[in-house]
Structures are given as structure tokens and as C-alpha cells.
Deep mutational scan, measured.
Amino acid sequence: IEEVKKIVSEIQSKQLTRITINGNTYQVNSPEELVEYVRKVFS
């Protein structure tokens, strides 16, 4: 979970619009959307 928080804060600070998780690239339009992807991947 700490690793996830680190990734999320990194993305928020860079305002990235794409994230790659487990080889899948997602278009991310908002931090909320990012959190949803993270929940799916780590749930």
C-alpha cells in the first residue's frame, strides 16, 4: 500500500495522463480515476 501511495503522489505531482500498471497503459483524466484503476489492480 505504501508503494501505491508513492506512485499516486508521483503521478499527481507530475500531472501524468497515462499510467502503466502490469504492462497495461491506462488513460487517466483525474486523480479520482487513477485511484479507481489502482483499486482494481490491487484489490
Rank of each mutant, 00 (worst) to 15 (best):
E33N: 07
Q12E: 09
I21R: 01
S43W: 10
F42P: 01
S30T: 12
N22R: 08
S30F: 07
P31W: 15
Q15F: 06
L16F: 05
L16A: 03
E10Y: 11
E33C: 12
K14T: 08
N24S: 09
V4G: 03
N29R: 07
G23M: 02
L34K: 00
I7D: 02
N22T: 02
R39D: 06
S43H: 10
Q12L: 15
S13M: 11
N29E: 10
E3V: 12
V8Y: 05
V35I: 14
K14A: 06
N22H: 09
I1M: 12
S43P: 07
V28P: 00
S9D: 13
E32C: 07
N29F: 10
Q12P: 02
L34G: 01
V4P: 04
E3S: 11
K40S: 10
V41Q: 07
E36H: 12
V35A: 08
L16Q: 03
Y26I: 15
S43L: 14
G23L: 03
R18C: 14
S43Y: 12
Q27R: 06
N24A: 11
R18Q: 11
V41S: 05
S9L: 14
V4S: 04
N22C: 14
L16I: 05
K14I: 04
V4M: 15
R18H: 07
E32F: 05
N29Q: 08
I21V: 05
S13F: 09
N24E: 12
Q27T: 10
E2M: 11
E2Q: 08
Y37W: 13
E10V: 10
E32G: 06
N24M: 14
V4K: 03
T25I: 11
K5V: 10
N22W: 11
V38P: 00
S30G: 03
R39I: 14
I11L: 03
I7G: 01
E33T: 03
L16E: 03
T20K: 05
E33R: 03
I19W: 04
S30K: 04
E36W: 06
T25R: 04
K14Y: 05
F42V: 05
L16C: 14
R18A: 12
V38M: 10
I21K: 00
Q12Y: 15
G23A: 02
E3L: 15
V38R: 00
T17P: 02
E10T: 07
S30W: 07
I1K: 10
Q27N: 08
S43K: 09
I11G: 01
R39K: 14
Y26G: 01
I19M: 06
S43I: 11
K5W: 14
Y26K: 05
G23R: 01
Q15Y: 04
N24D: 07
V4R: 04
G23I: 01
K6L: 09
Y37T: 13
P31A: 06
T25F: 11
G23P: 10
N24P: 00
K14D: 03
Y37L: 15
I7W: 11
L16N: 01
S30N: 05
V35T: 05
Q27S: 13
T20G: 00
E2F: 09
V28K: 15
S9R: 13
S43R: 08
E3F: 14
E3R: 13
E2V: 11
Q15W: 03
I1F: 13
I1T: 12
K6V: 08
E33P: 00
V38F: 06
V41K: 06
I11P: 00
E10I: 13
G23K: 02
Y37G: 02
R18N: 07
L16D: 01
P31C: 11
V8K: 02
V35W: 09
T20Q: 06
I19T: 00
V41M: 14
V41E: 09
E33V: 04
Q12A: 06
E32N: 06
V35E: 09
Y26P: 00
R18W: 09
L34M: 02
P31G: 01
E2A: 09
P31Q: 01
G23W: 08
I21W: 03
E33I: 03
V8W: 05
N24C: 15
N29S: 12
K5M: 14
K40C: 15
K6E: 07
V4H: 07
S13Q: 12
S9C: 12
S9I: 12
P31F: 12
E32K: 05
F42D: 02
Q27C: 14
I19V: 06
E3W: 15
S30Y: 06
P31V: 13
S13H: 14
N29W: 09
I11Q: 01
Y26L: 13
V41H: 13
S13L: 13
K14R: 10
N29V: 06
Q12I: 15
F42Q: 03
V28T: 15
S43G: 14
Q15N: 10
T25G: 02
S30V: 06
Q12F: 14
G23V: 02
Q27D: 09
K5R: 13
E33D: 07
V28Q: 15
I7T: 03
N29A: 10
I1E: 13
E10W: 11
S30C: 07
T25A: 07
T25N: 06
V35Q: 04
K40M: 11
F42N: 02
E36S: 05
V38L: 11
Q27K: 06
V28S: 15
I19K: 00
T20F: 05
R18P: 00
I7R: 02
R39F: 10
F42E: 03
V35C: 12
V8H: 01
V4C: 15
N22S: 05
S13N: 11
I11F: 01
V38Y: 04
N29P: 05
E2W: 09
I7Q: 03
T25P: 04
Q12S: 06
N24F: 14
T20V: 10
S30Q: 03
T20D: 03
V4Y: 14
V41A: 09
L34T: 00
Y26S: 01
G23F: 04
S30E: 03
S9P: 03
V28R: 15
E10N: 06
S30D: 06
T17L: 08
L34E: 00
V8C: 09
S43M: 13
K40Q: 11
T17E: 01
I7K: 03
N24Y: 13
E32Q: 08
E10K: 06
K40G: 07
I19Y: 07
I7Y: 08
S9K: 14
P31N: 02
Y37P: 00
Q12R: 15
I19D: 00
Y26W: 14
L34Q: 00
V35L: 09
Y26V: 13
N22A: 08
Q12K: 11
T17R: 05
L16T: 02
R39V: 10
I11C: 03
K40F: 12
K40I: 10
V38I: 14
V8P: 02
Q15K: 12
V41L: 15
S13G: 07
L34S: 00
L16S: 02
E3I: 14
K6T: 07
Y26D: 03
E3P: 05
Y37A: 12
V38Q: 00
R39C: 14
K6F: 10
E32I: 04
V8L: 14
I1A: 12
I21C: 11
V38E: 00
V38H: 01
E2P: 07
I1C: 15
E10G: 03
K40H: 10
E32P: 02
L34H: 00
K5P: 04
S43T: 09
E33G: 07
I21F: 07
T25V: 12
T17D: 08
N22G: 09
S30R: 04
I21N: 00
R18G: 04
V38C: 10
N22E: 05
K14M: 10
I11V: 03
N24H: 13
E36G: 03
K5Q: 14
Q27M: 08
K6N: 09
S43C: 13
Q15S: 09
I19F: 03
P31M: 09
E36V: 05
Q12N: 07
K14E: 04
I1Y: 13
G23D: 08
Y26C: 10
Y37N: 03
F42T: 04
I21E: 00
E3Y: 14
V8D: 01
V35F: 06
E36F: 04
V8G: 01
R18L: 07
Q15A: 09
E2S: 09
N24R: 14
K6M: 10
E10F: 11
T17C: 11
I19C: 05
V35H: 01
N29L: 15
S9M: 14
V41F: 13
P31I: 08
E3D: 11
N29G: 15
E10Q: 08
I7V: 07
K40W: 14
V35R: 01
Q27A: 11
E32M: 06
T17M: 05
R39A: 06
Q27V: 15
I19N: 00
V8R: 02
T17A: 04
I11E: 01
T20W: 04
I11Y: 01
S43N: 11
K40L: 13
G23Y: 02
V8A: 05
I7L: 12
R18D: 02
Q12W: 13
S43V: 08
K14G: 07
E2K: 07
V28H: 15
E36N: 06
K5D: 15
E32Y: 09
E36K: 05
T25S: 10
T17H: 05
E2D: 12
